[in-house]
Amino acid sequence: MKINSQGKITLAHGSGGSATRDLIAELFSARFSNPILDRLEDSAVLARPEGGIALTTDSYVITPLVFPGGDIGKLAVCGTVNDLWMMGAKPLYLTAGFIIEEGLDFSTLEYVAESMAREAARQGVAIVTGDTKVVDKGSGSGGLYICTSGLGSRVFEGVSVEKLLGREHLRDGDAVLVSGALGNHHACILSQRLGIDNTIASDCAGLGSMVRALLQEGIRVKLMRDITRGGLATVLNEFLREDLCIQLEETAIPVDEDVAALCGLLGLDPLYMANEGKFVCVVECDDTAQALKVLRRDELGRQAAVIGTVEPRSLGEPGVFLRTSLGGMRVVDVLYGEGLPRIC
């Protein structure tokens, strides 16, 4: 049964019969092709990578499915590989599970599959196994969910990160850097949903080239986190220890002008907005200048900046502070609520 690209997914495509087989073959296998996947067995049998293994899992439920700067497929690949890179692991293998709502256009699914294949190739990972299910129309949320897992190796190209990363290595004087401007992804999605006309694109991208460069140049990286849901503020609060706090400088935090204007319009704060191609890293004080140079050399890191320092924290003090342009001090807590447009 050949796939009708003009048509829509039906429940038959999820039944496990020939329709399912054809769907997988035409839409996914052909595009994701690699020696492991091509065997189309119940499990992917992998060679054990050197050193420690990192394993991550994630689910993608975004609407709209396609947006300026990316789509749910590209997001799934980049989001998964980034979770591995943040632990200093080189991504090797991905799995992809698709939950498809009956009625989704084939052309949309084709587009997403194409995008995933392209991005996986760009990120140097193989999608080695997957699954598809078709569900009744009814949740009404756009028609497609993607669930992934990713496996990576913590030893690659001669760099072993076993000793480098972890909260226990943070100390007074460490520098806090961010790889670029904040809030673009969240601003883009919100603009799409509210119908605001602008050229803000999602920053969806893989962070591998920057992480690899930092580690290979011997930068003493204590911690890395990609700045996704909840934004920078949430991420920073999550990795602190009780004896340390972070002092941020407002004037150092990069935000694009159009994103800042959108925030002003809707009452949003870039510190709390999601990104899909940005990370924060904490490095040894003496390595700050070099780390910044390394990030800025990468085309994704042109707006990288040193935004703060790690300092000792007194008992009962909050964990993250921001010094404003006038020298006032503001506490930066985790995100409460959903960062929705407000009038007040």
């Binding site: 704060d269 921001l322 010094r323 404003t324 006038l326 020298g327 006032g328 001090m329 503001r330």
Partner: peptide
């Protein structure tokens, strides 16, 4: 006032 850290100033 909180956002600009004014109470602190």
């Amino acid at each position: 006032i909180f956002r600009h850290g004014i109470r602190d100033l």
